[in-house]
Design a protein around this nucleic acid. Structure first.
Lengths: 207, 207
DNA sequence: TCGCGAACAGACAGGTCTGTCTACGCAAGG
DNA sequence: CCTTGCGTAGACAGACCTGTCTGTTCGCGA
């Protein structure tokens, strides 16, 4: 039902964002998220979106101005929902920073196993837009910076020797795992990433 | 000039594939490669491609049958050219397997620094196509399996404890680096990946 | 010189795209 | 009751899409 690419437990959190759960804006975002993520942004026309959302086309253009505006809103909303789900999920796994870092890849594996896992919407959006423009790239960078800042903080709290390097190494493994999982449809990518992460964090935290 | 996303030294190798260097087929592939990689497959129409290639539209449909056929041919050709360039580049760096593995990320850095680096065409193609279909995903898997088989063989020759695991770990770092470089346009991703790789290979080869 | 096939040029069909516009329904508040 | 405003339904414009088709041009081998 839900239009998202996130695990089901993320849904309620997202619902709280809009006063009414079924206003046209929320229905449009949900329908557009599902369609964009599954079929690609350029492959989906606004008529398909409004039909799935059950709203009038004029409502879409009144609320978002253009298809581009809707794309941006979808990415922002999906990014925020994902970050909330992700940080909550690793926090649920453990109270201490090291435990939360250790939970990153098991939590990603959970994501990959979702029936509707379509990869990272930001990576996919950048991949299908003009690479000489930075409109979409900026949104992706913004999202990634927020995720990485959180990971960097956890690394610093955990006592990593070089939290910045640790952050970048985890980022590489995360994006690599996401892409491999998208292409192969096998969640095992997260398990390989977890073992690699274990070696990297040992090097950072070993006495 | 060249329509590729590869470093210039890869070009001559590619030219050898077609008897004549400037037949319509080669011009179409070159134009389509550049346009698809830079702007996205769905964002480019066949009229733009034939105009850039300087061929008639009927020639495109005679040679490739459909736009889909052209996309598939572009991916196959670009994948083959990339693999040839990549294996040659790491082989040029060192005669022994360990040295070739060590060269992987510096060689990637070289790729990232290209003015026309647009990310991996296979990742991008999967990202913008229907994720519930496997038409494009199969091509990407085929390409990645060939690259990884080569890396696995190098790892085995180098005496890795678990060449399969090493292969998957390198794959994660490679794809992660490619995606990060595409999004940030910073080739430093390859340098972080190299340091991470150093730690992982040490764990595999340490006495 | 002739003939043939490859490629070009470009019109065309039929469909889809984004975005705009008008007309209507309906509910809440004065 | 009546107005105001949100949302719906759907026609429409103009551009662009893929794919086909016709006619022409040009080079090469016999």
């Amino acid at each position: 039902m839900a239009g998202s690419c996130l695990p089901p437990e993320a849904m309620p959190a997202r619902r709280l964002k809009t006063k009414a759960p079924d206003n046209p804006r929320a229905r449009l975002l949900e329908a557009a998220t599902e369609l964009f993520c599954r079929k690609g942004i350029n492959a989906i026309g606004v008529d398909t979106i409004v039909a799935k959302a059950g709203v009038a086309k004029s409502t879409l253009y009144k609320l978002f101005g253009s298809k581009e505006g809707l794309v941006e809103a979808v990415l922002r909303a999906e990014g925020e929902a994902w970050r909330e789900w992700f940080t909550a999920a690793i926090a649920r796994a453990s109270p201490d920073p090291r435990g939360q870092l250790d939970a990153i890849f098991p939590v990603l594996a959970q994501w990959f196993r979702q029936k509707r896992f379509y990869g990272c919407p930001f990576i996919n959006a950048v991949a299908e837009h003009d690479k000489t423009s930075d409109r979409v790239r900026r949104l992706a960078i913004e999202h990634k910076e927020q995720v990485l800042a959180h990971i960097r903080a956890l690394g610093a709290e955990a006592g990593a020797r070089d939290p910045d390097r640790l952050m970048h190494e985890i980022a590489l493994l995360m994006d690599g795992a996401i892409v491999v999982a998208m292409i192969t449809r096998a969640p095992t990518a997260a398990e390989f990433a977890k073992v690699a992460y274990d070696k990297l964090i040992d090097a950072q935290l070993a006495a």
